[in-house]
């Protein structure tokens, strides 16, 4: 399986928070060759057991499946729509962009912008998402027959290859993490695993991590690792908060995470010559790991992140090699039995 092909399929499937049916079905299809036990639960989480033994150790690996989206809040008579963000959309990328409006069919809209010919003040600031207007070019009843309030709107950009093994696409947050889990399942297929392993593809992270919170309650693992994306370096960014693209997975270290897990992962990366970077955070991580850790009586949790540029925009950029390395590292973590209790 080529990671880039997999990512193209994942990113071509539009699924915002609360609307995960399509991506959940695709994930189920992609992973069915590597597991006999896959279910999609009532919250559209995809739960996949790799080795459902009665082993004491139960490792949960989690990645969220929803992506940044917008929802329609009003439809007027002249073809214009108002929107609200569903997840932290970067409203600065919207003026003059095309978006896909998923009503009864998919139509293209343009986010309104005033051309330079009519603007007196050149350096005008950005509008908040709630003040932006989408132009569909379809008016009256015809539009209302296609589009309703509550319908989802997505950035209009197909995945595209950049140099080497790098890809740009909207929704790489967190289809990159999803790809890591699927690759990991593939690598583990021929292996003998001593512990019980569950892959959780969770819903609604961009709103409140509903999927991760509810699924871990039922699954009750002995430890968990969240896989997400995090900030890669780019000009004008805080260097100390970012890692380098193409330099391997970011291993999370934070007061809220299990230091035993991060130490073990770091050790494995060193021993196996897998490139890695440390991502140090001073309290919470801003990922599902924050919720997984405090489930039930507390669950030791780690965090692996794929470096990504331009998060929450239509032009997110990742390196497929980073995904491959992250999958390998996870695979080794599982095969060596998770946390070492000394």
């Amino acid at each position: 399986m080529m990671v880039s092909d997999l990512l193209f399929r994942l990113c071509d499937t539009l699924s915002g928070a609360g609307n995960e049916e399509k991506i959940a079905n695709l994930i189920k299809k992609e992973i069915q060759n590597f597991s006999k036990e896959i279910i999609i639960d009532k919250n559209k989480n995809v739960i996949c057991h790799l080795n459902n033994t009665n082993a004491k150790k139960h490792i949960l690996i989690e990645a969220h499946i929803d992506q940044i989206s917008m929802v329609i809040t009003a439809v007027d008579d002249n073809g214009f729509l108002n929107i609200s963000s569903c997840g932290g959309v970067d409203c600065r990328v919207l003026p003059g962009s095309t978006v896909l409006i998923c009503g009864k069919k998919i139509i293209t809209g343009i986010v309104c912008t005033t051309p330079p010919h009519l603007i007196e003040k050149k350096d005008k600031d950005f509008e908040k998402t709630e003040n932006l207007i989408i132009d569909t070019g379809i008016s009256g009843e015809k539009l209302k027959n296609i589009v309703s309030v509550g319908d989802y709107v997505y950035f209009d950009a197909k995945p595209e290859k950049l140099l080497d093994n790098k890809i740009t696409a909207p929704g790489l947050d967190n289809r990159a993490g999803v790809a890591v889990l699927i690759r990991c399942a593939q690598m583990l297929k021929a292996e003998k695993i001593d512990c019980s392993v569950t892959l959780l593809f969770s819903a609604q992270e961009e709103i409140n991590s509903l999927g991760a919170k509810t699924a871990i309650f039922d699954l009750d693992p002995t430890e968990a690792i969240a896989v997400d994306v995090s900030f890669a370096k780019q000009p004008n960014n805080l260097e100390e908060r970012c890692s380098d693209l193409s330099h391997g997975p970011m291993i999370g270290i934070a007061p809220s995470l299990s230091r035993s897990i991060s130490n073990k992962i770091t050790k494995l990366a060193e021993q196996n010559n897998i490139p890695y970077q440390l991502e140090i955070m001073s309290s919470l991580t801003g990922t599902t790991a924050d919720s997984l850790t405090v489930s039930k009586g507390g669950i030791p949790c780690g965090l692996l992140s794929v470096p990504l540029r331009y998060m929450h925009s239509p032009v997110e950029v990742i390196d497929c090699n980073d995904i491959e390395f992250t999958a390998k590292l996870l695979c080794m973590y599982i095969l060596t039995g998770g946390i070492d209790y000394e």
Binding site: L162, Y310, S313, V317
Partner: peptide, 13 residues
């Protein structure tokens, strides 16, 4: 026709 993107600092930061 090399593809490129005009990215921004992530909104989170």
């Amino acid at each position: 026709k090399i593809p490129g993107v005009i990215g921004l600092k992530p909104v989170h930061l």
